[in-house]
Design a binder for these strands. Sequence first.
DNA 1: TATTGTTATACTCTATAACTATA
DNA 2: TATAGTTATAGAGTATAACAATA
Lengths: 150, 150
Amino acid sequence: MSDVKGSAGLPDTLVFRLGTLGAVVGDRFAERIERHDLKPKHVGLLTALGQGSFASQQDLAGRLGVAPSLVVALADHLETLGAVRRVRDPQDRRRQVLTLTDHGQELLAACTTEARALDAELTAHLGQSEREALHAALGSLAARVGLPAG
Amino acid sequence: MSDVKGSAGLPDTLVFRLGTLGAVVGDRFAERIERHDLKPKHVGLLTALGQGSFASQQDLAGRLGVAPSLVVALADHLETLGAVRRVRDPQDRRRQVLTLTDHGQELLAACTTEARALDAELTAHLGQSEREALHAALGSLAARVGLPAG
DNA sequence: TATTGTTATACTCTATAACTATA
DNA sequence: TATAGTTATAGAGTATAACAATA
């Protein structure tokens, strides 16, 4: 409408929409998990651990796409909360294997509940078929950019 | 599949997908506009100006959802590049009105081209109807969280 | 006195690089 | 010598608060 050039302007692109929505939705999610003393990156780490175990923290860093030193900081915090445990790999005592504790699983479940509630808020105005199409399309995009499958 | 609890795990939620996709896609976009010496926030400012003018930098800060001091920093950089001009409002000499220069319009157009190219890459595996459904759904979500319409 | 833009300051996040322990 | 984890350091990004000019 406001574009005189006859084709989609920047705000109509997927890139712009995903970027802005990601930021806004991420902030809202951050607010909701604040009471658990968690930030989105912590939840990302918990999620990865919930999907399977990793040989080392460096493995995990690769999966999360962050520097190994950041995994240390995240794991430190999660360990303080009692959400993860570090156990030395007896095969190679340089390695620390991270595992979710029961409390960690509870936290992960609580964050999942928050995310679902936010999902419901965001899509309350959409019909069931639209919701499903959106879900499928985003899953497909995520796979395309190499993000771990849900 | 990997979820034993019988309902969608965190990685399957919209919130998680939008957050991770937003980050990844944002990074890719950032790489592409780096050669113009721009970052996503600069493009957000240019985009806002491209959609209409704002009474003051504080207006702009509200629209972008950032602190006024950040608008100063962004505008400083854009002014150095010759993309925007600051002109004092003669009605109220405290106000600086930002306007896009011709070069600013060119930069905005170049960034739009980059975004469209990225869009095409991301959705190359989707059919036309899927692409349209995705576009519509994201636009609808954006409106729902109060983001400026495209 | 209130408001706009700016500057100064500080804090958060994250990466790079140096260091320690183990291999 | 090479690798995993950690610690130390530094840089980017952004917000808060003080300041100057104008109303």
